[in-house]
Design a protein around this nucleic acid. Structure first.
Lengths: 337, 337
DNA sequence: TTGAAAGCGCTACCAG
DNA sequence: CTGGTAGCGCTTTCAA
């Protein structure tokens, strides 16, 4: 009598023998059911499920030179904005029979390079990167890897392969323009020290300069930060010391903005009358707080689904019509600014 | 001259030939460097890195019957609390040369079963599950899979294999006792409809009953919910209609509590004087909001690191001293209750 | 529509 | 410490 854990050691050969067919046929049953005779198909399927057979995907990957694994490299999963992207990725991939291998860099370049190397060693079918990697060596390595790659969350000029995102610089500029258009004239900026926040800051400052108003006050928070909310509160406190006091502040993410909001509330400062606060990302919480948060919406989840879709198209069709997708962004005007 | 993408097709054989050793030795250089002669080691390493050779981990997995992949199954990555667990998992695993395969169930049992089947097919070295799976078939399947498994976020009686978490029921009871101890007597509960929230509710109600005060008012939010914060606001509005009005409410997660807080603020209700609000999880935001949120701290990240550590011990040593780890919880008293 | 057989690239055992 | 080599379980021609 077979022991209850025999299913773990079952192989195609066992199914083939039981069904009186070759292992090639069993393989086809799982991979191209369309080409096997209906009767054979039914019989093999029945036996496989009765014996609780699960094909060994590792062996399949090796033989087929195709892993059905996509790897994603993100700074940290703990940031809601990246979790949403992962959610989008994961949902599309799972739905199409692929799996997601996840790695965090903690904003460290050496970590990133190491992760990429491991994923390449795993022979993943595709790679999703957060942001544009500046590291020349990594870029070269990636290009010669000859696998579909999509860079996300930024929209630069020379992608390694594919690209889906938006221009952080333009988004920063749009935020400034929005605030200026609402009549604010002494603008502050609070942001992380990562590259994407830097781009937003750059766009923001350019727009401020272009409008001919005084240059903006800036506070940058080191990445990674234990708590963005707390950091936002502290940053706003710092900004409030400046003279003349800013009348509006743009935060490079919603959590920081939330911290700013809380700090204003704590100090009895009316938002937006005494200080306007604007966020970035449009997390679900942005519309739920009071005052609700004016923010820049960027479709974090869409970035993930789009990246997955492009990757799969390239993997399965061998090429892709459009390698660069600009998802854009939009200003969501609410109460805080 | 080799084309720049030749590295992708390089195999151990190429390195072996170049170094004048056997492929067995090359394999040892990567897996057990200690047993090869220092000179050989150096030479092989130099050649491998010069040629930009990356071992094919898939082939290694098949031959070695060991994938160095751990899979995690969570309801949704979008919930900060699970991202923290994933963060803990990922950090430990990466540090020890393992990779993380991630799958979301969206709180659906069929999805969960399908994911588990795929992961098993991938021959992962270990599996991390969120919560206790009630599905008998899945449990049986998992037991016969003979791989290390750790169930998390709950502390039940008959784990499939290993267990790390805390008792949601006791945590719920502790929350009730805390509120009762502070003098509140008309308690409300707002929670998700998942199993873990259910356990917290159960503990909460038992404690209320044990204290001999009126049974608590309950609002349950369907899972998954688009925005917990929003749902919290709506739920509190609903609770506020009850007569007599509750004087304290326990929310089964911090985001819901945050929504409650915001709604109170919106209605000009003083927290905690007119209504005490208590959360669950101790997200970073809990201590940053005003009033700061009294909550139950559960070490979501620790659950992840602990799960990874146990899995690796079992994988590498073949057995583990302690299969059940109760991480406990603690009440963090702040301003809101 | 099916079968036979040649690998996929590596690990691990055994000999030396 | 090193080499030879038999698989790991599957996919994929090629022929039948």
């Amino acid at each position: 009598m077979p022991s209850p854990d025999d299913d773990a050691k079952l192989k195609m050969e066992d199914i083939a023998r039981e069904a009186g067919v070759s292992i090639a046929t069993v393989s086809r049953v799982f991979n191209r059911p369309g080409v096997v005779h209906p009767d054979t198909l039914a019989r093999v399927k029945e036996i496989a499920s009765r014996l609780r057979y699960t094909p060994n995907l590792t062996a399949g990957s090796l033989a087929g030179n195709r892993s059905r694994i996509i790897a994603a490299v993100i700074p940290t999963i703990t940031n809601s904005i990246f979790s949403e992207t992962i959610d989008g990725l994961s949902t599309v991939l799972t739905g199409r029979g692929y799996q997601l291998l996840l790695g965090q860099t903690s904003y460290r370049d050496d970590q990133q390079a190491a992760l990429i190397e491991t994923f390449l060693g795993r022979r993943v079918d595709g790679l999703v990167l957060t942001g544009i990697t500046r590291d020349r060596k990594v870029r070269t390595r990636l290009k010669s890897a000859r696998i579909p790659i999509v860079e996300t969350w930024e929209f630069g000029a020379n992608p390694i392969d594919m690209l889906v995102g938006f221009s952080n610089e333009k988004a920063g500029a749009a935020a400034a323009d929005y605030l200026i258009g609402r009549g604010y004239a002494r603008l502050g900026f609070i942001g992380g020290s990562d590259q994407r926040s830097g781009a937003r800051l750059e766009g923001f400052c350019h727009a401020v300069a272009a409008a001919g108003i005084a240059p903006c006050r800036i506070v940058r928070i080191p990445s990674p930060s234990p708590s963005s909310v707390m950091a936002g509160s502290q940053a706003i406190a710092q900004l409030l010391h400046e003279r003349p006091k800013p009348d509006a502040v743009f935060c490079s993410n919603d959590m920081i903005a939330l911290g700013a909001l809380v700090e204003c509330q704590r100090r009895g400062l009316n938002v937006p009358r005494q200080l306007a606060v604007m966020g970035f990302s449009d997390l679900p919480i942005a519309k739920a707080v009071a005052p609700s948060l004016t923010t820049v919406q960027v479709g974090a989840m869409d970035i993930g689904s789009q990246a997955a879709t492009m990757l799969l198209e390239k993997i399965e069709k061998g090429h892709i019509a459009c390698k660069r997708v600009d998802l854009g962004f939009s200003i969501v005007a609410r109460e805080s600014a």
